[in-house]
Amino acid sequence: MNDSLILRTSAPLLLWLALAVSIFIVLRGHNAPGGGFLGGLIASAGILLYAIAHGRDRAMRRMRMAPVGLCGIGLLAALASGLLGFVTPDTPYLTHRWWFPGGGLALGTTIVFDLGVYLAVVGTVTAMFLPLLRK
């Protein structure tokens, strides 16, 4: 890649922006357009941009973890989110639980599941495409 000062300067900013937006998209996904798949893709796009600007190795270092590790965590999170379904005998696996702390807020294990999807998508996309970039 040709060095571009603008890109190099803006990439870290854009990375944080992309990550923030992606988390927001995941969190609101249950009630408005968004969700784990979309959020994961947006986060991946941010990381990819950063990798293009600063090189693959720096991007890998900033992730602090091998991309497949993210995949694993995501899968485990999604798997674990369904375990609470076993608490009551007549509900099957992946029956989500909800907690209503008041003020119209509803927190469910669905959010854990969606975050799992998010991490799996980020892990997959980065695992596949970071190696394609030149150092």
Partner: peptide
């Protein structure tokens, strides 16, 4: 939605 993401993964795999 899932088909897009799965297809994307498959494409990436094929590209590699």
């Amino acid at each position: 939605l899932t088909a897009i993401v799965i297809g994307f993964g498959l494409t990436a795999f094929a590209l590699v």
